[in-house]
Structures are given as C-alpha cells and as structure tokens.
Amino acid sequence: MTYKLILNGKTLKGETTTEAVDAATAEKVFKQYANDNGVDGEWTYDDATKAFTVTE
C-alpha cells in the first residue's frame, strides 16, 4: 500500500511516498526520513487518505 508524507517544516516543505505493509511501518520510515532531514514537529495521520503530516 502507498502512504504519503506531507512535510510542513520550517526549512523543508514537500511530499514523499513510500510503499509499506501497514501504517505503523510507513510511520517508522517517514519519521526516520523527517529526522534525517532535520524536521521535528507535530505528527498527524489521516487513514482515509493514507497521509501523514508533520508540521514544525
């Protein structure tokens, strides 16, 4: 299944996707991606759209 990450960081904005077996796996991938790019903020998840959002 495809999951999307929407980044609303102070220095990094954009979107990326990942293929994962479930939302928990996608969340781990996205949190590592955000951490690697220096984005740390409030996380939300919308199951209807399979989209995670992180806002700094």
Rank of each mutant, 00 (worst) to 15 (best):
M1A: 13
M1S: 14
M1G: 12
M1K: 13
T2I: 14
T2F: 08
T2K: 10
Y3N: 03
Y3F: 14
Y3C: 03
Y3D: 03
K4N: 05
K4H: 11
K4T: 14
K4D: 03
L5M: 04
L5P: 03
L7V: 12
L7F: 11
N8H: 10
G9D: 04
G9F: 14
G9R: 04
G9T: 15
K10N: 12
K10T: 12
T11H: 14
T11Q: 10
L12N: 08
L12E: 06
L12R: 06
L12T: 10
L12I: 13
K13I: 09
K13C: 10
K13W: 11
G14A: 12
G14Q: 12
G14H: 12
T16H: 14
T16C: 12
T16Q: 10
T16M: 15
T16P: 03
T17Y: 15
T18Q: 05
T18M: 11
T18N: 04
T18R: 05
T18Y: 13
E19T: 14
E19V: 15
E19K: 12
A20E: 04
A20D: 03
A20Y: 02
V21Y: 12
V21R: 11
V21D: 10
V21N: 11
V21S: 11
D22P: 00
D22T: 05
D22G: 04
D22M: 03
A23M: 11
A23D: 05
A23H: 10
A24C: 11
A24R: 09
A24S: 10
A24M: 11
T25Q: 13
A26D: 01
A26L: 01
E27M: 14
E27I: 08
K28V: 10
K28I: 12
K28P: 03
V29R: 08
V29W: 14
F30E: 00
F30R: 00
K31V: 06
K31Q: 08
Q32R: 10
Q32F: 05
Y33K: 02
Y33R: 03
Y33Q: 03
Y33D: 01
A34K: 00
A34V: 09
A34C: 15
A34L: 11
A34H: 01
N35F: 15
N35R: 15
D36S: 10
D36Q: 11
N37A: 13
N37Q: 14
N37C: 13
G38A: 06
G38H: 09
G38N: 10
V39F: 13
D40Y: 15
D40N: 12
D40H: 15
G41K: 01
G41L: 03
G41V: 02
E42P: 04
E42D: 12
E42G: 05
E42A: 10
E42R: 09
W43C: 02
T44F: 10
T44S: 13
Y45G: 00
Y45F: 06
Y45D: 01
D46T: 04
D46R: 03
D47Q: 10
D47V: 10
A48R: 11
A48Q: 11
T49R: 09
T49W: 05
K50F: 08
K50G: 05
A51W: 06
A51F: 06
F52L: 01
F52T: 00
F52S: 01
F52I: 01
T53P: 00
V54E: 00
V54S: 01
V54F: 05
V54N: 01
T55L: 06
T55P: 01
E56T: 07
E56C: 06
E56Y: 11
